[in-house]
Simulated assay, not measured.
Amino acid sequence: MTASNIRQQILEHLKTLPGEQVKTVLLTWLTGTSTSLEDFERLLTHQATQTTEESFEYGEIDTELNFQPLTEAQMVQQSQSALEAYRSTGSGIAHDRVREWAESLGTDRERPCPR
Score class of each variant (00 low, 15 high):
residue 2 T to D: 09
residue 4 S to Y: 05
residue 4 S to E: 14
residue 7 R to D: 06
residue 9 Q to L: 10
residue 10 I to L: 15
residue 10 I to V: 13
residue 11 L to S: 13
residue 15 K to D: 13
residue 16 T to K: 12
residue 16 T to I: 08
residue 17 L to E: 02
residue 17 L to C: 06
residue 17 L to F: 03
residue 18 P to N: 05
residue 20 E to L: 05
residue 22 V to A: 09
residue 23 K to L: 10
residue 23 K to I: 10
residue 25 V to I: 14
residue 27 L to M: 15
residue 27 L to F: 11
residue 30 L to P: 00
residue 30 L to R: 14
residue 32 G to Q: 07
residue 35 T to F: 02
residue 38 E to V: 10
residue 39 D to R: 14
residue 39 D to M: 10
residue 39 D to C: 05
residue 40 F to Y: 13
residue 40 F to D: 00
residue 41 E to A: 03
residue 42 R to D: 11
residue 43 L to K: 14
residue 45 T to D: 11
residue 47 Q to F: 01
residue 47 Q to G: 01
residue 47 Q to W: 00
residue 51 T to L: 05
residue 51 T to M: 02
residue 51 T to D: 01
residue 53 E to L: 11
residue 55 S to Y: 01
residue 56 F to S: 03
residue 60 E to R: 09
residue 61 I to Y: 12
residue 62 D to I: 12
residue 62 D to A: 11
residue 63 T to G: 10
residue 63 T to D: 14
residue 63 T to A: 15
residue 65 L to Q: 14
residue 66 N to K: 15
residue 67 F to M: 04
residue 67 F to R: 04
residue 68 Q to I: 15
residue 68 Q to K: 15
residue 69 P to L: 05
residue 69 P to D: 04
residue 71 T to F: 00
residue 71 T to L: 00
residue 73 A to V: 04
residue 73 A to C: 05
residue 79 S to H: 08
residue 80 Q to M: 03
residue 80 Q to D: 07
residue 85 A to G: 15
residue 86 Y to I: 06
residue 88 S to H: 11
residue 88 S to Y: 04
residue 90 G to M: 11
residue 91 S to R: 14
residue 94 A to V: 05
residue 97 R to K: 10
residue 101 W to G: 02
residue 102 A to R: 08
residue 103 E to H: 10
residue 104 S to I: 10
residue 109 R to Y: 07
residue 109 R to A: 15
residue 111 R to W: 02
residue 112 P to C: 11
residue 114 P to I: 00
